[in-house]
């Protein structure tokens, strides 16, 4: 890698024309940003097309469902419904219209609720973000802490206990964990509410309202977070054990540092790189990942919206949720990349 005179380094040289260099690097940054944005939009477009085609491949359409619900299933009524939704036009024409609309941020109108899809999603978004955000934070903090504990005591009883715990949560279906938590903490102990997002009709305001929501949040957030906590714990443990065997840890010991400092400053920091990568992937699923938990706990979020829309074949709502989820994944991917550049100097341009 290095050339022969090892004094001639590739350390960034102090530039005489610092400003010109700065301008050039800013321009480079802007160009790279533009390239990234173009790629992101292309990915979103592709996802929108695939979603649209997939959903039209599924058997049944909204007209038959609606007609079934109203009890009048004569062919003429169904044809009329299809015509009013534009479902009788060729698929490619429908696709073209759909893409044109989403380009203008118009996600269409719900067939069943007769409201703009964007409004429906924005109504439900805060509840979902609260739930998944809380679960994410819990999973990350508890997972890294448990993983670090296990790695520090690798091979001992604590390590085995953490590993078994993590494996148990990793292998158990989410809805079952949810049901058990409800059984223990609301049915038997009566400590926490089992469904909904707030006490209906209590009319709490300000801090009381948030404390109330917090009590409702605990069980669903735990349910959703325990699985990811298990993943982070395993990931952190494995990464720390690996880093602990590397040469620069031996250097740190040879410097006479305390074990605590070696763990914090040298092992943990390096071990967090793979954890960040995975957390970035999970953060992208903040919207879409909670369908099951929202169903179990009757949490009024996007997941429930999507679930109901699926049963009703409410294409515009379903597509809207999908697109939203996809956008979230793409945005968090970008955020992870940027974060990575901050924490790992080797990735910096």
């Amino acid at each position: 890698m290095s050339s022969s005179p090892d004094l001639a380094a590739n350390v960034p040289a102090p530039s005489a024309s610092l400003q010109a260099g700065l301008a050039r690097s800013l321009l480079g940054l802007a160009l790279r940003g533009a390239a990234r944005l173009a790629k992101m939009l292309a990915v979103l477009l592709a996802i929108a097309i695939v979603n649209f085609l997939l959903i039209h491949l599924a058997p049944g359409d909204p007209a038959t469902v609606l007609a079934g619900q109203s009890g009048a299933a004569d062919p003429q009524f169904i044809a009329q419904l299809r015509h009013s939704f534009g479902l009788d036009r060729p698929l490619l024409v429908q696709l073209w219209l759909y893409l044109r609309h989403i380009a203008m941020l118009d996600l269409g109108t719900s067939y069943t609720q007769d409201r703009p899809v964007l409004g429906l999603i924005l109504d439900r978004l805060p509840a979902t973000l609260l739930l998944t955000g809380a679960a994410f934070a819990f999973a990350l903090i508890a997972g890294i802490a448990l993983g670090a504990l296990a790695a520090r005591r690798a091979g001992k009883a604590t390590d085995t206990a953490v590993t078994i715990l993590a494996l148990a949560f990793y292998a158990t279906p989410i809805f079952w964990v949810g049901l058990m938590l409800v059984l223990v903490f609301s049915v038997w102990l009566g400590w926490l509410p089992s469904f909904g997002m707030e006490t209906v009709g209590a009319g709490y305001r300000g801090l009381d309202h948030w404390l109330d929501v917090g009590r409702y949040l605990i069980l669903p957030a735990l349910t959703l977070g325990l699985f990811y906590m298990a993943v982070y714990a395993r990931l952190t443990r494995a990464a720390m054990v690996e880093v602990a065997g590397q040469d620069f840890i031996r250097t740190a010991r040879a410097k006479g540092l305390t074990e605590g400092r070696i763990l914090r400053r040298h092992i943990l920091r390096n071990a967090l790189l793979p954890v960040v990568t995975f957390a970035g992937i999970q953060a992208g699923q903040l919207i879409g990942g909670s369908v099951l938990v929202e169903a179990v706990f009757a949490w009024p979020g996007i997941g429930q919206l999507a679930f109901n829309a699926l049963l009703a074949r409410d294409y515009p709502v379903l597509l809207g949720v999908f697109l939203c989820t996809a956008a979230m994944v793409v945005v968090f991917n970008l955020a992870t990349d940027l974060l990575y550049r901050l924490i790992d100097p080797r990735m910096a341009p």
Partner: peptide, 24 residues
């Protein structure tokens, strides 16, 4: 031993590419 390491006994290792913490 920890107080001797680094202070009274210094050490240099074989692999210069991996002996330094890459994030520091």
């Amino acid at each position: 031993l920890r107080s001797l390491r680094g202070a009274r006994i210094g050490m240099v290792f074989q692999e210069p590419m991996t002996v330094l913490n890459p994030l520091m």
